[in-house]
Simulated assay, not measured.
Amino acid sequence: MSYDYAPPPRFEDQATPPKRTGRHPVNIGHLVMGLAFLVFVGVWALVETGTVVVRSIEDLRWLLPLPWIVGGSVGLLAALFRKS
């Protein structure tokens, strides 16, 4: 009696996949949100230490967009350098 197929390869006979080395690509979304969080903490620290005096909510109108501006510009730079 003959068989028309080869038996499946054994686990021991399979070649091991090459080990991945090196750096992994940076997730730009995580980078932007992490930087925005750090800048928010920095703004909070400036207000709490009294470095920036906030008498009313109107005084914060120039501080609150800073995290988004910093995070967005770093994200754009990371995307620009990632393509090249």
Rank of each mutant, 00 (worst) to 15 (best):
T49I: 12
V43M: 12
I57Y: 00
L77D: 06
V52P: 02
W44H: 11
G72E: 02
V47L: 04
L38C: 08
V26Q: 15
V43E: 14
M33Q: 12
L35T: 09
P65Y: 06
W62H: 14
L46G: 09
H24W: 12
L64Q: 08
M33C: 12
A36V: 04
L31C: 10
W68R: 03
A78P: 07
E48Y: 07
V70L: 11
N27I: 03
A45C: 09
L63I: 05
L77H: 08
A36K: 01
I69P: 00
R23F: 12
G72Q: 03
P25E: 05
I69F: 10
T21S: 15
P17A: 14
P65Q: 09
G34A: 13
I57G: 03
S73G: 02
R20C: 07
R55E: 15
A78W: 05
R55S: 15
L76H: 07
P65H: 11
F37T: 15
G29A: 08
L46Q: 13
L64H: 09
I69S: 03
L77K: 02
L38I: 09
M33F: 14
I57N: 08
P67W: 00
F37G: 15
S56E: 10
L46D: 08
W44C: 11
T49W: 11
P18G: 04
N27E: 10
A36H: 02
A78N: 07
G29L: 06
L80H: 14
L80R: 13
P25N: 07
G42R: 08
R61N: 04
G34I: 01
L60R: 00
G50M: 11
G42I: 03
I28F: 09
G29T: 07
P17T: 04
P67V: 02
G71H: 04
R55V: 08
S56N: 14
I28L: 12
V39N: 00
L64W: 15
P25L: 06
M33I: 15
L63S: 10
L31E: 05
G34F: 05
L35W: 00
N27H: 11
L60P: 00
L63R: 08
W62V: 14
R55F: 08
L66M: 14
L60K: 05
R20I: 13
G29E: 05
F37N: 06
E58C: 01
V43T: 11
K19T: 12
L80Y: 15
T21D: 11
F37H: 11
P17I: 03
G50P: 05
V53T: 15
E58G: 11
R61M: 01
L66H: 01
E58Y: 10
R23I: 03
T51P: 00
W62F: 12
L46W: 05
F37S: 13
L63P: 05
P65N: 09
V39Y: 05
L31P: 04
G22K: 10
P17F: 01
G75F: 02
L60Q: 01
V47H: 03
V54G: 03
R20W: 08
N27C: 10
P17H: 04
